[in-house]
Amino acid sequence: MTVRVQTEDFDVGLEINQLRQARKDIGAVVSFVGLVRDLNEGDDVTQLTLEHYPGMTEKSLSSIINQAKTRWNILDALIVHRVGTLQPSDQIVLVVVSSAHRGDAFSACEFMMDYLKTEAPFWKKEANSKGEHWIEAKSADDMARDRWKIEK
């Protein structure tokens, strides 16, 4: 299980191949790539700056992977998240999950992304023709996360 927070771009094919080469018992690999949009709420986006707390962020992402491991039979997982200043269409995040069967891989990947959006300590500042502003959390992201909560 690997977590990386970095300024550099990543090669999706290379990352998936490295994860696949590590094991022979993989039957499914599911991945998600998040990109910088060129429009947000009707405004053109010229750039997106992501900030984080080093150490705390990696710990949070590792915790998300560990939570997925307790829920689904996953063999390996990877989260790569970029920070710094990005342009529209740049890659922001990669989540890759491998398992013996596709159902576990799909569910774990979706869970990890839903939790990452709300639980990982990243702050996003968006620039557009009107200036710069910090992006507030969206209630839709909270609702996506909450559907995974287990009632006691």
Rank of each mutant, 00 (worst) to 15 (best):
M143T: 14
K24S: 13
A100E: 15
L48Y: 02
I16Y: 02
V93T: 11
H52W: 10
E8F: 06
E110V: 03
G131D: 06
D114F: 06
A28K: 10
K149D: 03
T118A: 09
R145N: 09
W148V: 12
A108S: 10
T70V: 11
S139P: 08
L61E: 08
S89V: 11
Q91N: 13
V83F: 13
E51V: 05
I135C: 09
R20C: 08
C109Q: 05
R102V: 04
A137S: 14
T85K: 02
D114R: 13
E119Q: 14
L48H: 05
E58R: 12
D38V: 03
C109T: 08
C109P: 00
F32H: 00
R20I: 09
P121S: 12
T57G: 10
L78Y: 03
H133K: 15
G55W: 09
G103F: 07
A108P: 12
S107N: 15
G27P: 01
G131C: 09
L48C: 03
D38Y: 02
K124G: 07
E110T: 10
R145L: 10
M1H: 11
K59I: 05
A120Q: 07
D146V: 08
I92S: 02
R23K: 14
W134L: 12
A137R: 13
A108Q: 02
M113N: 04
N73Y: 09
S129E: 14
V5E: 02
E41R: 15
R4N: 09
L48D: 00
I150W: 09
D146L: 13
R4C: 05
N17R: 14
L78Q: 06
M143Y: 11
A120D: 03
D104P: 10
F32I: 00
Q87K: 15
Y115T: 02
M56T: 12
E132F: 06
Q21S: 14
V12C: 03
I74D: 00
G84L: 11
D25F: 01
L75Q: 13
V30Q: 02
R23E: 02
V95M: 04
K69F: 04
E132T: 03
K130I: 06
D43Q: 13
N40V: 07
W72S: 03
I79L: 05
F122S: 07
M143N: 12
F10M: 14
V33T: 15
G27E: 09
V80M: 11
K125F: 06
V5C: 12
D141E: 15
A100P: 01
S63Y: 08
K125P: 01
K125E: 06
D9C: 06
K130Q: 13
D104W: 07
V30A: 10
